[in-house]
Write a protein that binds this DNA or RNA. Sequence first.
DNA 1: AAAAACCCTGTAGTGACTTCAGAGTCAATA
DNA 2: TATTGACTCTGAAGTCACTACAGGGTTTTT
Lengths: 143, 143
Amino acid sequence: MRIGELCQATGVGIETIRYYEKEGLIPAPARTDNGYRNYGSAHLERLSFIRHCRALDMPLAEIKRMLGFVAHPDADCGDINRLIDEQLARVRVRLKSMRALEKQLSQLRAHCGAGHTAAECGILHELVAAAQGEACACHTKAP
Amino acid sequence: MRIGELCQATGVGIETIRYYEKEGLIPAPARTDNGYRNYGSAHLERLSFIRHCRALDMPLAEIKRMLGFVAHPDADCGDINRLIDEQLARVRVRLKSMRALEKQLSQLRAHCGAGHTAAECGILHELVAAAQGEACACHTKAP
DNA sequence: AAAAACCCTGTAGTGACTTCAGAGTCAATA
DNA sequence: TATTGACTCTGAAGTCACTACAGGGTTTTT
């Protein structure tokens, strides 16, 4: 199976496959006479596994650890649990801040409809005022 | 005001301040005799504005546009509204995918408590199975 | 025979910083 | 006075996970 076929089979871009090889996430495959990469089903499975983990937004370093567990089936399962827990914690932190962000932005958006000049824009006023509030209240030294 | 003081006043790292200057988000300040950057209150306000926009996760390019509106108060306000709408749309897309992610991960996490080997781990089984399902069903050409 | 499609390597670019190396400047201390 | 420590400077490189490109070779199709 050539790289283009692997790309078709997994939906992973050719450049990305080569990148994963360079980064050591998939082993370097055998080459045909003309130097083309020649993949087998093990590569396909491993690449799909990687993409599934990436779809869970795991960093490549964590995926490497997961691949280590796949390769060592007698390792302790607790480490896998911890890894997923860490990932879940990261996702929840980001989720929380995204929710706050959505709220802030939609509130901000409500401060202005169209048809004004920038000088009259409630959005801009809010942003400038918020910036001033922050700069004065939060970080400056004693007066 | 030296760069360290501006850093204190705004909570923005020194290197980040220099980076913003290089990228043209804040104007290059005057220098003292020894070559140190010398900031005024206009810099402080502008930097706070930038950080507030960054806290809304706006890309620097959009923030540049916002700063343009601040500088041209007679511009049309509709552009500001559009900019915020775009940002809000981006945030909502990401929020949706983060929610899905959280769900997937917590479901995955439920497949295993501790105390097994990796071979017996429900999480690993799920991931491997999911990868196989994806590789077979979604992308391969006709059999 | 020529064109299109595929593959190769190696390098650079993305965004928004962060870190580092190597050097100069300034205030306070031994 | 010497020197320590804190601050500042520039410019380059590193981060993450790709993506795009330049410049070439190979295979398949027309």
